[in-house]
Amino acid sequence: MSKVCEICGKHPVAGHNISHSHRVTGRMFRPNIQKITIRDAKGRVRKANVCTSCMKAGKVERA
Rank of each mutant, 00 (worst) to 15 (best):
residue 1 M to E: 09
residue 44 R to C: 00
residue 48 A to R: 02
residue 59 K to D: 10
residue 58 G to W: 05
residue 62 R to A: 07
residue 52 T to N: 15
residue 57 A to G: 05
residue 61 E to S: 15
residue 55 M to R: 13
residue 25 T to K: 10
residue 6 E to H: 09
residue 43 G to P: 07
residue 22 H to Q: 13
residue 32 N to W: 13
residue 56 K to M: 08
residue 12 P to R: 03
residue 8 C to S: 04
residue 39 R to N: 06
residue 5 C to P: 00
residue 46 R to M: 08
residue 39 R to D: 02
residue 24 V to N: 12
residue 32 N to P: 02
residue 11 H to Y: 14
residue 19 S to W: 02
residue 20 H to C: 11
residue 14 A to K: 14
residue 17 N to Q: 07
residue 62 R to P: 04
residue 56 K to G: 07
residue 13 V to K: 14
residue 7 I to G: 01
residue 27 R to K: 13
residue 21 S to W: 09
residue 2 S to D: 11
residue 33 I to Q: 04
residue 34 Q to G: 06
residue 62 R to N: 06
residue 9 G to A: 05
residue 47 K to Y: 13
residue 20 H to Q: 12
residue 22 H to I: 06
residue 62 R to H: 10
residue 45 V to T: 14
residue 5 C to T: 04
residue 33 I to G: 04
residue 10 K to A: 13
residue 20 H to G: 10
residue 10 K to I: 05
residue 43 G to K: 00
residue 13 V to D: 14
residue 47 K to N: 11
residue 15 G to S: 12
residue 27 R to H: 09
residue 52 T to Y: 09
residue 21 S to G: 10
residue 47 K to F: 09
residue 8 C to K: 01
residue 23 R to N: 11
residue 47 K to T: 03
residue 59 K to N: 14
residue 12 P to N: 00
residue 33 I to A: 07
residue 63 A to R: 05
residue 51 C to I: 07
residue 45 V to E: 10
residue 41 A to G: 02
residue 58 G to L: 06
residue 26 G to N: 11
residue 37 T to P: 01
residue 24 V to C: 09
residue 33 I to N: 04
residue 41 A to I: 01
residue 24 V to Y: 07
residue 24 V to M: 11
residue 58 G to K: 02
residue 51 C to Q: 01
residue 46 R to H: 07
residue 2 S to L: 11
residue 50 V to I: 11
residue 4 V to G: 03
residue 32 N to L: 03
residue 57 A to N: 12
residue 50 V to M: 03
residue 4 V to T: 09
residue 18 I to N: 08
residue 39 R to K: 11
residue 54 C to K: 06
residue 2 S to F: 08
residue 38 I to K: 01
residue 63 A to E: 07
residue 62 R to F: 13
residue 6 E to V: 07
residue 24 V to Q: 12
residue 1 M to S: 14
residue 41 A to M: 00
residue 31 P to C: 03
residue 19 S to T: 12
residue 45 V to Y: 07
residue 25 T to S: 12
residue 19 S to D: 08
residue 60 V to G: 03
residue 58 G to T: 04
residue 2 S to T: 11
residue 55 M to S: 08
residue 22 H to K: 15
residue 60 V to Y: 12
residue 27 R to C: 12
residue 36 I to S: 05
residue 52 T to W: 10
residue 35 K to Q: 15
residue 56 K to S: 12
residue 30 R to H: 10
residue 44 R to E: 12
residue 33 I to M: 04
residue 29 F to S: 08
residue 47 K to V: 06
residue 54 C to T: 01
residue 17 N to Y: 13
residue 60 V to R: 08
residue 22 H to N: 14
residue 51 C to W: 06
residue 49 N to H: 09
residue 28 M to F: 15
residue 57 A to V: 05
residue 47 K to W: 09
residue 3 K to R: 15
residue 7 I to A: 08
residue 45 V to G: 03
residue 39 R to P: 01
residue 42 K to S: 15
residue 44 R to M: 03
residue 46 R to S: 01
residue 12 P to I: 03
residue 39 R to Q: 13
residue 56 K to N: 10
residue 54 C to S: 00
residue 41 A to P: 00
residue 7 I to H: 00
residue 9 G to L: 04
residue 11 H to V: 02
residue 37 T to N: 07
residue 3 K to W: 10
residue 15 G to C: 08
